[in-house]
Design a protein around this nucleic acid. Structure first.
Length: 375
RNA sequence: GGGGAUGUCGCAUAGUGGCAAUUGCAACAGACUGUAAAUCUGUCCUCUUCGGAGUUCGGUGGUUCGAGUCCACCUAUCCCCA
């Protein structure tokens, strides 16, 4: 994997660049649709490629390991072949599931024992086997196994958790160095910066990963309950330390405003379930703000979902989309997912254009108020 | 004409002496940030200063400290026999 910075904004830390992988080039800043279980829920690849213009999608180690299982993916020839997606893929390590499925796991220095959310069966993840699994899944970018502490963790817990994440990173890195890609193309390992909301921990974490010379870096453990302003501060703290010539990936974030503020602070990559999950639940991101399409006020609104929308689903009216949601028709969830992803992807493409044209900061000031009161 | 059954908050249901009344659906609103989510939560007779207050179970009257529940009559709907 290679990263090329094409240009930077003069007033902010925003930059435009390209990530070159074995499965193609990614223009940054980029938003990566989340396809946890080998599918961006409700969206065909054709729509992802042609309409949404996704350049890279995510998969999840935890989910794919449980189902269909690594053996199926190995026999398929890797995840790209299994799901018929020939562009870049990034897999998350399962570290986030260690957090979100906390009720059914046990953490030790060695790794994490957990119970499957599907059938309750017992499993064990370690830095080593998570790398092995991600070798078999075969994503272009793979993530280190980390612990993602809750947003309200106290300093002591956060510090101990960070130490664990750092130890795990060393082991991930070693395992990665000692293993080979299984399908003949290069894979790249990203470390994850943790440290909760504590600047000194974030700094320590960033310095630790920067010293290890990776090709790209991720910031995790944000947007897990802390105020957005705190998240922005943490991004600034960390990005001041991470090398400037590598992509920076802010994991699991966020709202459209989060994306723009992240870009302004030097983030290049984002992923988030919000456009798809919230979309399936009726939340539509439009150029005129966020709407809940199930609300009665759209019952007779025959205007397009988003007058400025760029995807083919934007031709549908709000009234029709509301009807689909109220009726529980699956097409509603599909339209919402496609529209929202197209909206997100267009937003970051616009940001890139603005960076290139030198008016990113001005654009940022004008667009943020339009994106929605609380987003 | 004779016999039987049944009327509960939009619909459907529970309730057989202490009840503003069960549950489901519908409706309305909210939540969702590296996806245990096509999920979850709340409201859903009226008013409310959220403490309560006021009116309810086809209608009228009665029994009772107390009635959606028991009794009488009326009324509506459905079923069976002529």
């Amino acid at each position: 994997m290679k990263f090329q910075k094409i240009c930077s904004d003069s007033r902010t830390q925003a930059r435009k660049g390209q990530i070159i992988t074995a499965h193609g080039t990614i223009d940054t800043p980029v938003f990566m649709p989340v396809g946890t279980a080998g599918t961006v829920k409700g969206v065909f690849h054709r729509e992802l490629e042609e309409d949404i213009q996704a350049q890279i999608i995510l998969g999840n180690t935890y989910h794919l390991y449980l189902r269909p299982g690594v053996e199926v993916i190995r026999r398929a020839g890797g995840l790209h072949r299994f799901v018929s997606w020939n562009k870049p893929i990034l897999t998350d390590s399962g570290g986030f599931q260690v957090f979100s499925l906390a009720a059914s796991r046990k953490l030790t220095a060695e790794g994490c024992t957990f119970r499957s959310h599907i059938d309750g069966s017992k499993h064990f993840f370690s830095p080593e086997n998570v790398i092995d699994i991600q070798r078999t899944i075969g994503a272009d970018i793979i993530m280190a196994f980390d612990e993602c502490p809750a947003g309200d963790s106290d300093y002591q817990y956060a510090a101990r958790s960070l130490t664990l994440t750092q130890q795990w990173l060393e082991r991930c890195s070693k395992q990665f160095a000692e293993t080979e890609p299984q399908y003949g193309y290069e894979q790249t390992l990203f470390p994850i910066v943790q440290g909760c909301v504590y600047p000194e921990l974030r700094r320590r974490a960033a310095e630790h990963v920067a010293a290890m010379n990776f090709d790209g870096y991720a910031i995790g453990g944000l947007s897990v309950g802390e105020p957005a302003e705190v998240m922005y501060e943490m991004i600034e703290t960390v990005n001041n330390i991470l090398p400037d010539n590598c992509p920076r990936y802010l994991m699991g974030v966020g709202t459209p405003v989060n994306l723009i503020e992240g870009i302004a602070r030097g983030i290049d990559m984002f992923d988030c379930v919000m456009p798809t999950r919230n979309g399936r639940n009726g939340m539509i991101f439009t150029s005129e703000g966020v709407i809940n399409i199930r609300n009665k006020k759209w019952e007779r609104d025959f205007e397009p979902i988003d007058p400025a929308g760029v995807s083919f689903v934007d031709r549908y009216s709000k009234a029709y989309l509301r009807h689909l949601f109220v009726s529980g028709e699956m097409l509603g969830a599909q339209i919402a997912s496609i529209h929202n992803l197209a909206f997100y992807l267009r937003l970051v493409r616009q940001a890139a254009t603005m960076i290139e044209n030198g008016n990113f900061d001005q654009w940022r000031q004008t667009i943020i108020p339009k994106l929605g009161n609380r987003l």
